[in-house]
Amino acid sequence: MSYSNATDFTNPSTFILLGIPGLEAAHVWISIPFCAMYVIALLGNFTILYIVKMEPSLHEPMYYFLCMLAATDMILSTSILPKILSIFWFNSREIAFNACLTQVFLIHCFVTIESGILAAMALDRYVAICHPLRHSTILTKSSVAKIGLAVVLRSSIVILPYPFLLRRWSYCRTNIVSEPYCVHIAVVKLACSDTHISSSYGLFVLFFVLGLDGIFIALTYLQILRAIFSLPTKEARLKTFLTCGSHLCAIAIFYIPTVFSSLIYSFGQNFPLHVHVLIGSMYLLLPPVLNPIIYGVKTKQIWGRLLRLITQK
């Protein structure tokens, strides 16, 4: 099937996903790590959900937030990887216009939800370290559920304009998306209308939603570090700081690739297109794969319950 770079339409019925441009001949080989990542993401996050549900000692705010993170990662990876694998394996590049807009909404909504959950987990660590005696009264099951609902509602409301704005534009240049999935910036580039509203709103979401979450997390950890350094012994400081280790790793694997990908898109015009695509894919795919591994290995309660489960089997 051949794809034209120039078409004559204003409302395309389908878009064409290129996969990884320039590496088409290696798609079958590239599919192996992508498929492995999907399997690991599903199994790892499902295991986290199962262990927390089955272990009464883990019915605490920290693990409730972890379950929210695991569910978010499962949905995020499922909104991306099946279509990527269908491109790699079956050359199934077409995606319906409405399906593309749905994928845009799901990807950006659950990325924003993940950012909000990481901020909520920072709040949990702050209360646990700075106000340990009030932790159970501040973060009750009800308050955790309300925080989770607020994160989901905020993300849904903020991202909902994306598909509605994209539906307004005329697409008279091309229907070829130079990515293996539909994301906001890639679809905006295809429009021949004045898309400054979509571009400006995308920057608003980046800086005033994800950016504010990052600032909140940084300020929270400044207070946590102040509390840690006020502890009397080095052993106590180290032990308390290690309780934040898993969360800090999750923050790093979410925000560092996100910032790096944004910089590449903004200032890396000299990078080959396949480098842009691979880096953009990593910021979406690494958190669902690595989060369950990090929390499974670093959290003794989860690791111990997993070992008991394997031994019983």
Rank of each mutant, 00 (worst) to 15 (best):
S198K: 09
P61S: 10
R154I: 14
V183C: 11
F88Y: 04
L248C: 08
I138T: 12
D124R: 09
F207V: 15
K300L: 14
M54F: 04
Y3E: 06
L284H: 03
I217D: 04
I75D: 04
N98Y: 11
L153K: 11
H274F: 15
L58Y: 04
H184V: 10
F208R: 09
S57V: 07
L263K: 03
L203E: 12
H276P: 00
F88A: 07
E235H: 11
P132C: 04
D213T: 01
L263F: 10
T14I: 09
Q269H: 13
I75L: 12
H27L: 04
F204W: 11
I294W: 05
E60V: 14
P161S: 10
L43K: 09
I117T: 05
Y126T: 10
Y50G: 01
Y63K: 08
L273K: 06
L17R: 03
A26T: 08
I129W: 02
I279G: 07
V52A: 09
F34N: 03
L190I: 05
P12Q: 06
A6W: 08
A191V: 02
C249P: 01
A120M: 14
F207G: 13
L190K: 02
I217T: 04
V144D: 06
I176F: 04
Y265R: 14
M282A: 12
S178H: 10
F164L: 15
L85A: 05
N91W: 06
I302H: 02
Q223S: 13
T195V: 12
F229T: 12
T72N: 15
L238Q: 11
Y162Q: 05
Y265A: 15
F15K: 03
F254M: 13
I48Q: 03
K239M: 12
G211P: 04
S266I: 07
L290N: 05
V39I: 07
S198M: 12
I87C: 02
R237Q: 08
I117V: 14
F110G: 01
K234P: 00
L210S: 13
C35F: 14
H131N: 13
I75Y: 12
V183H: 07
A122R: 07
M37C: 13
S2R: 13
N5T: 02
L203M: 11
C172K: 09
V277N: 00
T102M: 09
I107Y: 03
I251C: 14
T102S: 09
T112S: 15
I51N: 02
S57I: 06
I215F: 13
V275W: 08
S281N: 11
L248G: 03
P132D: 01
A26I: 10
Y171M: 11
F164G: 05
I113M: 08
S178E: 08
L23D: 02
L190E: 00
A252W: 05
T140R: 10
I157D: 06
T299G: 03
A236K: 10
